[in-house]
Write a protein that binds this DNA or RNA. Structure first.
Lengths: 355, 355
DNA sequence: CTGTTAGCGCGTTCAA
DNA sequence: TTGAACGCGCTAACAG
């Protein structure tokens, strides 16, 4: 599978120099005569030298500190998955002398976000992972980081005008488009469609939602341009309000058999439907594999869930920062996550990670 | 994210003993007085000691040899993906002094398979990864390995009566069930359905195919029990024969608008349909992301592809063997791969790997 | 310019 | 039973 393992000593011996000299040419650290350099280079060209990563890490005395600015998550939700991915990566790179901290803020709370960002500007940090929340505040931070030469990276959402070393997230518009295509497979003549939205529709934190909606309506425009659409605004917390709203809505619109939810809270609709078997929906699509959503999928009150690998986003985020900062490797400017399609039949086999 | 890093020396100092003693209690290597043991244990209980993996690997002098018995792959196909995953894992564990070799055989060729298996019985091997092909031959090998105490693991297909430390693969029946559910979303009154099969239908190598078919028909039985079904037998190689067969079939059966292929060769049907736009199919489902299949998906001559992460199977296979043999960790008895659902709209974002 | 040397954290001798 | 000493492969500081 791979060839013999060569060590620095091997190379030194083959080139007739000392290990120190080999190390110097390997790292272009200068102070090497042209003659020695060539002799070493010749050996290097002939064999396929792969340094022992472990020895490198062990010998390296540098310490790196990375900080993540991400929303606080609650048990099982989207951000807690991101957090888990970060933890997993942190664990993996720990022996490389990389420490990872999370500086969490309250989602969609500007003051809280500002505070987290400000903190980054007072401490020594080697790299920052940001799940951006408010545009202007983010730019203040990234401008500062740009000046300092501190690399940073966005996950989940990309802020233009900033200069992250990488962006990791899903193509939201495309995922909306796909959501529509899936859902409309259930369409039958006369069906109407409902978008279940959340009050904070225009909150800066909900731009993803907008993108998904864009993609969704793009599909409708191409394929079902006469479809009757309804917007239902639900509340994030107030179940009673939602109950009344949905009661009211479904009574008034008996032809609505399809529904879409563009944030993580499709379970609100799913749970309602479970309580109200008299409401006959033919298709509901939602996002993210919160335990509540998965439960709805299994109970068939939700038909499709679209996953965006939050854990992988966190994991890749940290790994990308490491590759850039610690290993000085080239990193992709943008990494789109897969658009995972989950149904009752494959949810049990789904897992996010690799090993 | 994690607490201070403790080294063996730290523990030794805290417990008032030497590093050697700490090592002895850590590895239960005996020759430690009860008093020393307790003092060390006390420190261990108080701190969260995580040994430096790199130092362990570096200090370890053991060499491990793992061998993979897998079918020969051709550029881009299923087995070449498995092979890639194995290579990736091999690269990762290389510095742990683990070498990985592949002993390939010709798929569905019993002699070739036997030869590969026999080779395992003559050489010193620390662990074996097997993609089983013929039942009896496999059992001969596994019996031998059982006797030797050499751990082995199956990927792709599980042979009962053997005692692998783990099986890694997809739930084929369930994936067939899901394939049916997806495809039947395209069903319209009067549609007939075609199964495009391959000559070697009852080859031992094609049992997976049978399972998928089982799952598929199970769904039909539950939901569409009056559907008219057709079997079309295509040839693996002979394009002309297939062309004629399909011409003939579609002429005779104009109501067939749905099709399923249970091996990797849905492209044969997809390519035919591209050449024959007069044949109007509404839905085709197939397996595996061969480049040809992906191309069909993008061209919309195939509507759904089901992925089973061949690369991940290879990767996890090696990693599992390592965890068991090298790191002596408990490993899962069975790892089902996700049943990935790919359509034109999400194929571009699909990738198998993690980082 | 170059070879030598001292660790990095751990496993493994080998005396004591 | 224990501590000290060595080496894994590599980096970096130091002496020549």
């Amino acid at each position: 599978m791979d060839t013999k393992k060569f060590t620095i000593k091997d190379i030194a011996r083959l080139a007739g120099v000392s290990a120190g000299t080999v190390d110097r040419v390997l790292h272009q650290r200068g102070d090497v005569s042209e003659k020695s350099r060539q002799r070493v280079q010749k050996v290097l060209d002939e064999i396929h030298y792969q340094p022992n990563k472990f020895a490198i890490a062990l010998a390296g005395k540098k310490n790196y500190r990375m900080v993540c600015i991400i929303p606080q998550g609650k048990e099982g939700d989207y951000w807690s998955s991101v957090h888990q991915g970060i933890e997993r990566a942190a664990h993996e790179v720990r022996d490389y002398n990389v420490s990872v901290e999370c500086c969490t803020f309250k989602h969609a709370d500007e003051e809280s976000y500002k505070k987290a960002c400000r903190q980054m500007m007072t401490e020594r940090v080697d790299a920052v992972l940001i799940a951006p929340n408010f545009r202007e505040t983010t730019l203040t931070l990234t401008n500062y980081l740009d000046e300092q030469g501190t690399p940073y990276l966005f996950i989940d959402f990309n802020i233009l005008k900033a200069h992250p070393i990488s962006y990791i997230g899903q193509d939201s518009k495309q995922s909306g488009y796909l959501a529509a295509k899936l859902l409309m497979k259930e369409y039958r003549e006369g069906d109407e469609l409902a978008f279940f939205l959340t009050g904070s529709k225009d909150s800066p934190a909900e731009i993803q939602m907008q993108r998904r909606l864009e993609g969704f309506t793009a599909y409708l425009a191409e394929n079902h341009n006469r479809l009757i659409l309804h917007d239902i605004i639900l509340d994030k917390e107030d179940h009673h309000y939602n109950e009344r709203t949905l009661d009211d809505f479904f009574t008034k619109h008996p032809d609505v058999h399809l529904g879409a939810v563009f944030n993580s809270r499709v379970y609100a609709v799913g749970n309602y439907l479970r309580q109200h078997p008299e409401v006959k929906m033919r298709g509901i699509v939602g996002y993210d594999l919160l335990p509540e959503n998965v439960e709805c999928l299994k109970q068939s009150t939700v038909d499709y869930l679209i996953g965006q690998r939050p854990g992988l986003q966190g994991y890749c985020g940290i790994m990308t920062l490491c590759n850039h900062v610690v290993f000085k490797l080239a990193v992709p400017t943008i990494s789109y996550m897969p658009i995972d399609l989950l149904m009752k039949e494959n949810i049990d086999y789904y897992f996010e990670k690799e090993d």
